[in-house]
Amino acid sequence: MKDVRLEPMTEEQYRPWRAEAETHFAQSVAATGRTVRDAERNAADTYARLLPDEFATPDHHFWYAYDGDRRVGFLWIKVTDDSAFVYNVSVEADLRRQGYGRAIMLAAERWCHENGLTRIGLHVFAHNTGARLLYEQLGFAETGRNMAKDLRPAS
């Protein structure tokens, strides 16, 4: 099994990460059936709302995950009371399906335990079947479900 260590991001690392993460979020939103323009607007609005003070937004934590000297992914969580919420976790594209997603999530759980947190939650897009399977294997349970119906005429 893979093992990773989490290294806090620096403010300098945060800036390019933020741009890339927002772009990826917009792509995930677009995959739900929204137009690219709407998805980009949604992503920009979401990130602005969640991170009004950018890197310095209170209770938000950003890490890069490493396997030895190799950066393998990242993790962003917010802590509220005794809970953590995973806003974003990702594995470098060329390293996916090698156990790093699981390793990053297990490192997140260890960090939560070490910091006295008793619950960890996240959102996963329905189309991301690989991530959904991983989270279920890690013991995450569905706590809600968003549904949508496209009302545009079929082309």
Rank of each mutant, 00 (worst) to 15 (best):
T118G: 13
I120M: 15
W111R: 06
R97W: 03
T129Q: 14
N146P: 03
G99A: 08
R96K: 10
M105Y: 13
A43W: 03
H113F: 06
H60L: 02
R145W: 01
Y66N: 07
T46D: 06
T143N: 13
Y47F: 15
M105C: 13
G99T: 15
K78R: 13
P52N: 09
G99R: 14
R70G: 01
D81K: 04
N128K: 06
R119E: 15
N146F: 12
H60Y: 11
G144K: 08
L51F: 06
G130D: 14
Q98V: 00
F85I: 09
F55G: 00
K78Y: 01
A43D: 09
A65S: 03
A65F: 02
R71V: 04
D82M: 04
Y87Q: 09
F140H: 08
L122G: 06
Y100N: 05
L122R: 08
K78G: 08
Q98G: 07
H127R: 02
W111G: 00
K149S: 01
E142H: 04
A43Q: 07
V124A: 14
A108W: 01
G130C: 07
T57E: 06
L133A: 15
R110N: 11
L51M: 10
R70P: 03
R145D: 02
D82W: 09
A107I: 04
D150Y: 00
A65I: 01
A148N: 00
F85Q: 05
A48V: 10
A65R: 08
G101E: 12
